[in-house]
Amino acid sequence: MNRFLWSLLVFIFILLLAACGTNEQSQQNNETSSSEDQVAEIPEVEVKFGEQPLPVKEKTNIEAVVTQGSEPVEDADYVDFEIWNNSQGQESSKTIEAEHTGDGIYTIEYTFDSSGTYQVIAHTQVGDLHTMPQVEVKVGEEQSATSDDSTSHSHEDSQGHDEMKEKFMVHFMKEEGFKAGEEVQLTTHINQMEQPFEDGLVRFEINSEQLDKHIYVDAKEQEPGEYTAAHSFPAAGDYTITIHYEKPDQDIHGHQEETVEVTE
């Protein structure tokens, strides 16, 4: 075999090896991309009650059915139900951790202490993804009304529904607790019209008897609608954290206060 033919065979062999490597790398990239797409799917949460109106001063089951990619989520980091009566406002809300009962169903037992219209938010964390659907529920028997009253009531309900669409939902993460002298992550999730509040300006205002003045800490968006900031509380005690969120170009300005206890 002459030298030219031998060189040609070696050259062809090198080209074949390069082609195989490219195909393998392309396949790996496709598999990685496919895996990332699956992880990025936002979980779906359906909140379920019994027949409305729900009873007063009786234990009632509330369920959240959590799925991701049509499959039940069996290992959600947490599902917390936040509940309040419209007449008392969100500042009176109670938060209850749900128990996983299987098939992606997370359940609590709750006793409504009075009649009225209630808001229920299912704060749900699955990996790095957070969602918090909000539903409205009637509790107790509705009182009779004249036709004029009914018309007025329907109009007011419609207005309330429109206002609810624009409402922001702010969930401050304080379940893990805070210790004095340790750097912690302040984390809040913000939704607008049940969608993540993205690209907003968010900061935490911190106030306490332990401080000489208010402290302001700017937060960064880590995930859509999730804002975090590092902070160290100087001493144990009660602190008020006001979450300020805004988009000046859209004339959006809002805030929500939270109280946290910092331990030694």
Rank of each mutant, 00 (worst) to 15 (best):
N2D: 15
R3W: 09
S7V: 13
S7W: 11
V10R: 12
F11T: 15
F11D: 09
F13S: 15
I14G: 04
L16W: 15
A18Q: 14
A18G: 09
C20Y: 14
T22F: 11
N23A: 15
Q28V: 08
N30Y: 14
N30I: 12
T32L: 15
T32F: 13
Q38S: 10
E41P: 01
E46I: 05
E46G: 00
P53V: 00
L54V: 00
L54W: 02
V56F: 08
K57L: 00
E58M: 08
E58K: 09
I62A: 05
A64K: 08
G69T: 13
P72C: 12
P72H: 13
D77C: 03
N86G: 10
G89A: 01
Q90Y: 14
S93M: 15
E97Q: 14
E97F: 09
G102A: 07
D103Y: 02
G104W: 00
Y106F: 12
T107E: 15
T107V: 13
F112I: 00
D113I: 01
G116D: 04
G116P: 00
T117P: 00
Y118M: 09
A122G: 02
T131W: 07
M132V: 04
E136V: 10
E136F: 07
D148R: 10
S152E: 13
H153R: 14
E156W: 08
D157G: 09
K167T: 07
V170F: 08
F172R: 02
E175Q: 09
E182F: 10
V184K: 11
V184M: 08
V184A: 11
T188I: 06
H189M: 01
I190V: 10
I190K: 05
Q192G: 05
M193P: 07
M193H: 14
Q195N: 12
E198H: 08
D199K: 13
G200L: 02
R203M: 10
E205V: 14
N207A: 11
S208N: 04
H214Y: 11
V217R: 07
E221W: 02
E226Y: 06
E226R: 10
Y227M: 05
A229G: 01
A229L: 02
F233T: 07
T240W: 03
T242P: 05
K247D: 08
Q250K: 15
Q250G: 06
G254A: 12
E261I: 11
